[in-house]
């Protein structure tokens, strides 16, 4: 690992000010992507700005008259999966958090770090798309559909800090993950969310970025049951193909996982 200067600011403003005065700073929250990256010498930041001591970024609460769920960016996967509020309001989101990596990773990894990293096989991107999330930073707000631009690419500028994420609360929903048995990441993950008059289907792991399946959304909006999906054809064009799975296999997994997700959402 290359060496760096280390800082642990107490407020968002301090962190931003500090980063603006550094050559090539990087934010550190749970560190479970950043530290492995540093170990492999895949990054050489001049300064590491540890935001884990900033107060007020790990709250989980209901906002906008109870219509949206707010999760602070420093909330760990462990805290999201065990939060009574999340379990009560969006159980599928709590379940998703419980499927990330392993218990040790879930104690440390944060929702803000995962979202900022925009790994194409990470789990949260599917939830953010399906739950119409708003990503709030120290100086902007982004809608999830504008946020996952490409593999590891987001509209975040260099020294921008995600402070919290707001989610719509669906009538019902489910997340089904086909995990890569070696890495634990999603080979394919499908999140389905049913609202009063619409349905959103979002897929992670299968392509270079998380995406929505509009054809499936139309079919399920007409009638929310597994039979509506019988004619659905998932094209393998543009899906990932690697040593773990071909694009055809991934396309197949998307459909099967979606069917399972609809069944779970109806339970």
């Amino acid at each position: 690992m290359y060496n760096f200067n280390y800082h642990k600011p107490k407020t968002v403003d301090q962190a931003v000010e500090l980063m603006n005065s550094c050559d090539d700073p990087k934010i550190l929250s749970g560190g479970h992507t950043m530290v492995p990256t540093l170990k492999q010498r895949l990054a050489q930041p001049s300064d590491i700005v540890d935001i884990s001591n900033i107060g007020g970024l790990s709250n989980i609460s209901l906002e906008e008259n109870g219509s949206r769920l707010n999760i602070g960016s420093l909330s760990t996967h462990y805290n999201v999966s065990n939060s009574d509020t999340v379990i009560q309001k969006i159980p599928s989101l709590a379940y998703l958090a419980s499927q990330i990596g392993d218990p040790q990773v879930r104690y440390r990894g944060t929702i803000g770090g995962s979202v900022a990293n925009a790994d194409p096989s990470a789990d949260y991107p599917a939830a953010l798309l399906a739950l119409n999330a708003t990503i709030v930073t120290n100086n902007a707000k982004y809608q999830a559909e504008d946020f996952f631009v490409d593999m590891f690419q987001t509209p975040l500028s260099e020294n921008e800090i995600i402070t919290n994420i707001l989610f719509d609360i669906p009538v019902t929903g489910a997340y089904v993950k086909f995990r890569n048995p070696a890495s634990g990441y999603a080979m394919v993950g499908v999140f389905v969310a049913k609202y009063n008059s619409s349905v959103i289907v979002a897929v992670t792991g299968a392509g270079p970025k998380a995406f929505r399946l509009s054809e499936a959304e139309e079919l399920l909006t007409k009638s929310f049951d597994v039979n509506s999906l019988s004619e659905l054809k998932i094209e393998s064009d543009g899906l990932n193909s690697d040593i773990h799975a071909s694009s055809e296999y991934r396309a197949h997994l998307v459909k099967v996982s979606l069917q399972d997700a609809v069944k779970i959402a109806l339970k």
Binding site: Y6, L28, G31, V35, D50, S52, P103
Partner: peptide, 15 residues
């Protein structure tokens, strides 16, 4: 009180 991977945490994070 939480089981964590000490290979993926900087010593200064454990201050």
């Amino acid at each position: 009180g939480q089981a964590v991977k000490s290979c993926s945490i900087l010593a200064i994070q454990a201050e």
